[in-house]
Design a binder for these strands. Structure first.
Lengths: 152, 152
DNA sequence: TTTGAAATTACAACTGT
DNA sequence: ACAGTTGTAATTTCAAA
């Protein structure tokens, strides 16, 4: 069960850490950083992708530059089981993450909007999801940091 | 003030959306997807990087495969101003994100550990940060989705 | 599984429009 | 600001250990 098929050794972890830092670097550079030839580094990274350890190569953007300067976390209380409400939350583009949480029957969502007015509008739309009985929004004043999952 | 220097037009947004989906694709492919030549696409992406709109190219990993299968959000209450406690939180490797939030003097952190025992240990270490007076941990049972910031 | 080399392909800079 | 060209550099495949 789970995705954890196969073993991720220390070299794999070092490769992943390097790729998290900069996925544009050449395999020769990458290999040198972990003590491997370019070809060997290429092979291991390919396998990490095949096995799903590396899910994708992507870019990190500045949310403010894209008009998503307001960040908030919203607790969504519900009167029913929300286990298969994925699509309902995914349909709201401003929602970046959605998690089912322990405790009360709730979903925790991470929301990014341009303004607080738009945040309010997202809350309104959350109430249209079946089973949703309440929301508690927490607005972020300053982000200390957001970083990749530690690989080592 | 802010990072939002210059304009991000619709073509830039389309480029970013494509790169978020797959940053390994060639500039020729990327250009075709948005109706640009390879060189023009390359030019615009370079400028987006220079301006800091694109912060870095990185890889998304499966947390479980790296032994970070337990996800929790922790509200950290404090008796003092936490405005310059960045380093204290950054020093805890299991903390993936840390944000100052409105309302009470608090920090919201996103934590990933292998086990709930390790989560407990992180909570213990949080209490060693000066000014921290309490924590409320919320464990995630299931993640619906985690996706990039919407570019369009 | 790694290395090393060869063929393919993409990158990155320049020029012209 | 975009397209086309070109030299340079990287990727990717393959044979061999």
């Amino acid at each position: 069960m789970g995705t954890g098929n196969g073993i991720v050794d220390d070299v794999d972890r070092a490769l992943i850490a390097e790729l998290q830092r900069d996925a544009t670097q050449a395999y020769a550079t990458l290999g040198k950083a972990v003590g491997l030839s370019a070809g060997a580094a290429h092979d291991r990274v390919r396998k990490l992708r095949e096995r799903g350890v590396i899910r994708r190569t992507t870019v990190d953007v500045d949310p403010t530059a894209l008009g998503r300067g307001v960040l908030a976390f919203v607790m969504v209380d519900s009167s029913a089981w929300m286990g298969d409400a994925t699509e309902s939350f995914a349909a709201v583009p401003e929602i970046q993450e959605a998690h089912i949480i322990a405790g009360t029957a709730s979903v925790l969502v991470k929301v990014r909007t341009a303004t607080t007015d738009q945040l309010q509008d997202v809350l309104r739309r959350l109430y249209t999801i079946e089973g949703v009985s309440g929301t508690q929004a927490t607005v972020v004043l300053e982000t200390f940091f957001e970083r990749p999952v530690r690989a080592d």
